[in-house]
Design a protein around this nucleic acid. Structure first.
Lengths: 300, 300
DNA sequence: AGTTGACTCTCCCACGGTGGGAGGGCTTAG
DNA sequence: CTAAGCCCTCCCACCGTGGGAGAGTCAACT
């Protein structure tokens, strides 16, 4: 009983049929060195495979189905990795996949709240036909002025003030303090409404510096925020605020932190003229302010 | 109070800073017609944007975050779609996303069962060191011979037999019946163990034909299957079977239907010689059989 | 032995969203 | 007027997959 298995050679098409992997891909795996044919005719360059290669190919496909890319599969199939290394790769992939799923679930919830909004509008339609004909109406699908966006953590120098205090004087103090250290990051200054009798002015930092009694160095947390823009002077921002709160209710989100006003374009005080020019506006018509309302997504 | 808003024009870099979208992408959106600058200098070709364009850009980004591609976004932003059309698009995207998530969750469970297997092995290692040194051992990460794969529905002509009956005679009957109709699909014939005293022989069909009293035309359901290959004659397939069942236990899956034997390479009876040559083997050493064990994934 | 049809070879291109870089023009502050 | 920093267009790369052109090869049937 010698195990004299003399398997016949398969041409690439037959091997493709057997393995249910396309000819194109087999050739690709060959050039990548993932699965070389057992024999290649030196004259015709025809690739010849053997059934013994099916298990390896199936491993390859299985790894692909786990979401590894071909480079990673090459490393895994090459062997020479001990169990711990393999385990690490698997776990890394697990974490990645986990993260992907979470982010897609967020997408899905987001999408559903948009769809829900349509359903509400359709109900309205039935009841409020008369009114609607007059009103005309903005495009309902594309939240005209409010968007949901992620905001990263920001290192800032901050200063707390009473609501009655002079805000721009506070910013001047902050900017001049930060500029002494040459630590000004080139992003927009902002303000947070910590509670009804505290404002917090923030100026982004490019590196860590030390604070003072009143000027604190902190990191603002990353948030998901409902965001809207207000263009023009600061006297009429009520509209933007009501847009935000209406959106919040409609989409069924919950407040998750202090509101932020981000000053995207504004008038520079003399002391602030080291700021990136992109942020400077010449007239109050050009002022641009982003309102960010931090939210939790309700896991419905 | 005329609304004479005369906004200044922004160069692409400033607009990119404000919108947090890269310059590259702004140019790309321009060429795709998704967001044209309000003005382009005809001499220098410099693009000039206005802050009024930010809301549109933010809509664009929001849609991108919902997973729409740029072509779809173009359609959505172009306007001219009524509510129902938009709703349809949103729902289509919802379904797609839902499907993606499901498939990724399958991936994740699959991945976890591989990881779990490692943990088990590491436990074994502590307890069974002595033995293991002798045994040598196959690579544990890449289930050497068993893979998990999806199998699509297959239209087949089928014939039920008792386990004692002559299988190859049954296949001859099936193949000759099917070939009369020229309805043979070019994939491998298979057998299902319906219960302890019924075998079902199946021959894939390329189109629907009518059956007879004993030859039935059906569709095999799509399954997830643990799959392994057996090479050689049919007298010693026990090893392959035990591989499968061991794998099943190890990975904590549940049986979800009758086992299938797929005859990937075998000896052709004369009557069957219309079969694709890829399936024909000349010696029993070249026989190739795939065992498919349909499984449910346990939602752990 | 030659023809024919099916198969295979290599090489190039495309997708989509994003970024890198080269080579050259434009603007604006000093 | 110069230098630095913008901006322009055009090309290339990623990654996994497939399409197609043009040429060569194999096997089966006259």
């Amino acid at each position: 009983m010698t195990p004299a298995i003399t398997t016949s050679l398969l041409r690439i098409g037959d091997f493709a049929t057997l393995s249910r992997v396309s000819v194109k891909m087999l050739r690709h795996y060959d050039t990548l060195g993932l699965l070389k044919p057992v024999w290649v005719d030196p004259e015709s360059h025809y690739r010849y495979y053997s059934v013994e290669q099916l298990p390896r190919l199936h491993q390859l496909v299985a790894l692909k189905d786990l979401g590894f890319n071909l480079a990673q599969i090459a490393r895994l199939l090459a062997g020479g990795l001990d169990d711990n290394q393999i385990l690490t790769l698997l776990q890394a992939r697990e974490a990645e996949l986990q993260a992907d799923i979470t982010s897609q679930q967020h997408q899905l919830m987001n999408l559903r709240s948009h769809i829900a909004r349509f359903d509400i509008e359709q109900l309205d339609t039935e009841q409020l036909d008369a009114e609607r004909l007059d009103v005309g109406r903005s495009d309902p699908s594309l939240d005209d002025a409010v968007i949901l966006r992620g905001v990263n953590t920001i290192s800032v120098a901050s200063l707390e003030l009473a609501p009655t205090a002079d805000v721009s004087e506070g910013f001047v103090r902050l900017e001049s303090y930060v500029s002494k250290y040459h630590a000004r990051a080139s992003s927009a200054p902002l303000l947070r409404y910590l509670d009804t009798d505290t404002l917090e002015l923030c100026v982004p930092l490019s590196r860590s510096i030390t604070g003072t009694d009143v000027i604190q160095i902190t990191r603002l947390p990353a948030i998901q925020a409902a965001s809207t823009l207000h263009q023009g002077g600061y006297d009429n921002m009520a509209e933007a605020y009501s847009r935000l709160t209406a959106w919040l209710e409609l989409h069924n989100y919950q407040l998750a932190g202090p509101l932020r006003e981000v000053y995207l374009r504004f008038s520079a005080e003399p002391i602030e003229d080291q700021l990136p020019a992109a942020f400077l506006a010449s007239t109050s018509n050009d002022y641009l302010t982003e309102l960010q309302l931090p939210i939790h997504m309700l896991t419905s």
